[in-house]
Design a protein around this nucleic acid. Structure first.
Length: 586
RNA sequence: GCGCCUGUAGCUCAGUUGGAUAGAGUGUCAGUUUCCGAAACUGAAGGUCACAGGUUCGAUUCCUGUCAGGCGCGCCA
């Protein structure tokens, strides 16, 4: 519809110019927008005001010229000039009822578009370290990432959803060592757990099952384990040195094979938990990409060689540095430490190179906003390796600050004090949690009050939308009880009878859906879809309260039933993208 | 100190990429069921769009500065 209007205006302008009513000027992109106020018609165009300067004419005069030269169409009933020079269009009822026919014909396909057809995009999201269960902070990224992916799919992109598993590196060694120490404790060894270890209950569970499965296989005396280990922080020492000492001791006492087995038992246990958790939350993946596989395949080493060959690495203080300052970063970054170990950054360079080499047209990373300082160095590394950094887009998700009533909930994975995503789902449900997360713009700081989410979950907007869906279902149950049926053909033939103000409002709202999906997808803004659905539900509820659908006058009744079927369909389509269910009764 | 994000109704947030009289939810107050589900609807009240300049036909939106909050500035991940 917008395109048709745009086309008409363009024709009009060209006609006016060729008749020399308007001077020869460059035409800017013509903008058509939906009006906020019904009094201004359905669509408005501001082109006259945009041209005022270059044409050196009064905008209202330009507008009237445009209106005079507008080609004849059958979808517009009224064109007016208003305010400083807006051109307002009012659609004919014939064109406004068309949307019902479209929705009923296309069903679940209604609202899909092809703007992304032929383009592939990879979306990486959550990618939390497998050192513990997901907490509510990860939930926002999980909801956001999966909805962005669904939106892109809905607009024709070929989407690849991926989770990057940080199964290499020091944090994982700390986890393995934590599991080992809990295991030793369970075996009866008397020891003090390191202050820097992972203290969550899930570590105890892993240790227990390890003991049930393997008995004393990994047992060493506490005295042997702690011999020669630097003091921990509470004892006046350094907690990092302490834990590193314990990691090395674990590796040397257990040997490669046993250490790897212990390491993997912790990794697999937690990773399985994360996979199940995300699946239950409705965030699905096409691939779980292992960092360790990059290290073991030599990809990390190769990426470093690549950078060396580009002459952007140098050696200083025994470490290898990447000259990221040459590409706008604040400081140079270490890729190989003086102890020979590669850094997390080195893996990430290899990973992002790998992503681009897999041939995606676009690669999207969804990160917590605390990682924003990391963007310049990753992009720098890609540029240094002669890749197009613009193929990588990083979307940041702000933190959700958790409250219990008025009190802020302090969270730390290490200390084991956090509210898990699973607990959140148990408390408020998957649907409410997803909708709540996605209702706000990702770059918006968000307050998540658990008390409110729990105690007043009926006030959650998700129920408002779902209720609209259930209400339509209920109308049809009522229809059947009265021995009546919906006649789609009769309904479609009588759509012109939908002349009530509330009906026009619903029709207009339905027609907006495809624009909303496209805009939400291209701008990566799921929240506008969530807001749209509550708006649509509101228009429906208002309509429901004002008029009856099951009435004696058959033609009108069937037309109304057709309209609310269309509403139900669009709500279903929208909620499907959000990953929220559509209960037929609630 | 430097960088990124944010500042809109009592509270939580929208605001169609610069448009017309700044909007919802929630909370407060006042109403609506012999009628398809009241998890709904109607109405009232509530605003110096943090503050000060600038850009232009027009600014909540773009630019600069100030103030306030969040995050980041490791040979951690």
């Amino acid at each position: 519809m917008k395109d048709q209007l745009k086309n008409s205006i363009e024709l009009s302008l060209k006609a006016a110019i060729s008749q020399q009513i308007l001077p020869e000027i460059d035409l800017p992109e013509i903008q058509i927008e939906r009006t906020k106020d019904k009094a201004h018609g359905d669509f408005a165009c501001n082109i006259a005001m945009m041209l005022a300067k270059s044409a050196k004419m009064n905008p209202r005069q330009i507008a009237s010229t445009i209106v005079d030269n507008l080609p004849e169409t059958d979808f517009i009933t009224d064109v007016t000039i208003a305010g400083p020079g807006f051109i307002n269009f009012t659609l004919s009822t014939d064109s406004s009822i068309q949307v019902v026919k479209d929705v009923l014909a296309k069903k679940a396909e209604f609202g899909l578009s092809q703007v992304g057809a032929g383009k592939s995009v990879q979306v990486e999201f959550v990618s939390a370290n497998p050192t513990g269960p997901l907490h509510v902070g990860h939930g926002r990224g999980a909801a956001y990432g999966s909805v962005v992916s669904s939106l892109l799919t809905a607009t024709g992109f070929k989407v690849h959803r991926e989770y990057y598993v940080n199964d290499a590196g020091r944090q994982m060694d700390i986890l393995a060592t934590s599991v080992w120490l809990r295991y030793l404790d369970a075996c009866g060894e008397n020891l003090t757990f390191p202050s820097n270890g992972y203290k969550g209950d899930y570590v105890l569970d892993i240790a227990d099952s390890l003991r049930t499965e393997h008995g004393d296989k990994f047992l060493h005396s506490a005295m042997q384990v702690f011999e020669g280990i630097a003091a921990d922080e509470p004892q006046g020492g350094d907690k990092e040195l302490h834990i590193d000492g314990l990691i090395n001791k674990a590796k040397s006492l257990l040997g490669d094979a046993n250490y790897r087995q212990l390491f993997d038992s912790g990794l697999n246990s937690i990773l399985t938990d994360i996979r199940d958790d995300l699946a239950d939350f409705g965030s699905d993946y096409d691939e779980w990409f292992s960092e360790r596989s990059l290290v073991e395949s030599g990809a990390v080493e190769k990426a470093i060689e690549h950078l060396k060959s580009e002459n952007v690495l140098y050696e200083k203080d025994g470490a290898w540095w990447f000259k990221s300052t040459d590409y706008g970063d604040e400081k140079d970054r270490v890729v190989v430490r003086d102890n020979g170990q590669t850094t997390y950054f080195a893996s990430d360079i290899a990973y992002h190179l790998n992503k681009l080499q897999r041939g995606f047209d676009e690669v999207i990373d969804i990160w917590g906003s605390d990682h924003h300082g990391y963007i310049p160095r990753v992009k720098a590394s890609l540029t240094a390796m002669k890749q197009d950094e613009n193929r990588l887009k990083v979307l940041l998700v702000q933190f959700a600050v958790l409250y219990r009533g008025k009190e802020k909930v302090a969270m730390s994975t290490r200390s084991g004090q956090f509210v898990t995503l699973r607990q959140l789902r148990d408390e408020v449900g998957k649907d409410a949690a997803r909708f709540f997360y996605v209702m706000r713009g990702a770059d918006q700081h968000m307050d998540f009050d658990l008390e409110l989410a729990k105690s007043q979950s009926n006030d959650n907007p998700v129920y408002y939308v779902q209720y609209a869906y259930a209400r339509v279902c209920s109308v049809f149950r009522q229809l059947a009880e009265r021995g009546l049926a919906w006649d789609e053909q009769q309904g479609l033939q009588n759509l012109t009878k939908l002349t009530e103000e509330h009906e026009q409002a619903v029709l207009t709202m339905l027609a907006r859906y495809p624009e909303i999906v496209e805009s939400a997808a291209l701008n990566h803004t799921p929240h506008i879809l969530a807001h749209y659905l509550t708006d649509l539900a509101r228009d429906f509820h208002t309509y429901y309260n004002a008029h009856h659908f099951i009435i004696d006058e058959q033609d009108l009744s069937q037309a109304r039933l057709s309209l609310i079927v269309a509403v139900r369909q669009v709500i279903a389509n929208g909620l499907a993208i959000l990953g929220v269910s559509t209960p037929e009764s609630m």
